[in-house]
């Protein structure tokens, strides 16, 4: 099932009819960062929901311009860290003090100072895995197919051009009107992307 089919199956509230034509949405190209920022603010203010900006590098302030909320990734990392630390400590306690107790260099079987390094390393390791995998999962990656990646112009989104895409399943989407709106924002090219 392609993304467009999936989207067209979703009932949408609002007046605009959903065009069930296999159209993923519209892609508008911008030449510079300031143009993109200004356009993103206007798209946000126009009330679009299913839209995105595409840039070759993280543009500082763009998330604000798009009205994105802070991500909840830090909680994933915190959870990862707590799990790693707890597992690290419990593992050492169970293995060295319970399952195979062995006196070494006169230290207690369960000696917290000696257990801190391994506990620390596992805390960091699990928190880092949380950050990495959490980022991928929240971002819907890996995704080996996406309609936008079929567009030739979009190839420059990872090099030197800036794009705004508005998806067809946005309640305010209207092929003609939205395209005109994007052009009015100073886009150098607006294209339809089929999915």
């Amino acid at each position: 099932m392609t993304a467009a089919q999936k989207h067209s199956g979703t009932p949408v509230q609002g007046a605009a009819p959903v065009p069930d034509t296999g159209v993923f949405g519209l892609l508008a190209e911008f030449q510079t960062v300031p143009q993109l920022m200004a356009a993103a603010e206007k798209v946000r203010d126009a009330g679009y929901i299913h839209w995105d900006s595409h840039t070759p590098f993280p543009v500082h302030g763009l998330s604000d311009a798009m009205g994105l909320k802070p991500t909840r990734l830090p909680y994933v990392v915190l959870a990862g860290g707590l799990i790693g630390g707890a597992v690290g400590l419990l593992m050492q306690w169970w293995m060295n003090a319970i399952d195979y107790p062995l006196v070494i260099s006169g230290k207690p079987l369960f000696s917290i100072p000696a257990n801190i390094p391994v506990m620390f390393e596992l805390t960091v390791l699990c928190a880092a895995i949380g950050a990495f995998l959490g980022m991928l999962v929240m971002n819907g990656l890996p995704a080996l197919y996406h309609p936008l990646l079929t567009n030739d112009r979009f190839r420059r989104a990872t090099a030197d051009r800036f794009f705004i895409s508005i998806e067809a399943d946005d309640p305010k989407f209207d092929a003609e009107g939205t395209a005109g709106f994007l052009r009015s924002l100073g886009s150098s090219a607006v294209e339809e992307v089929r999915g």
Binding site: M66, L149, T158
Partner: peptide
């Protein structure tokens, strides 16, 4: 590249990560 498309919604979490 895992299907990366430079989307700002992706960058947003990517930068935090």
């Amino acid at each position: 590249s895992l299907g990366w498309r430079g989307s700002n919604r992706q960058w947003h979490r990517y930068e935090r990560a």
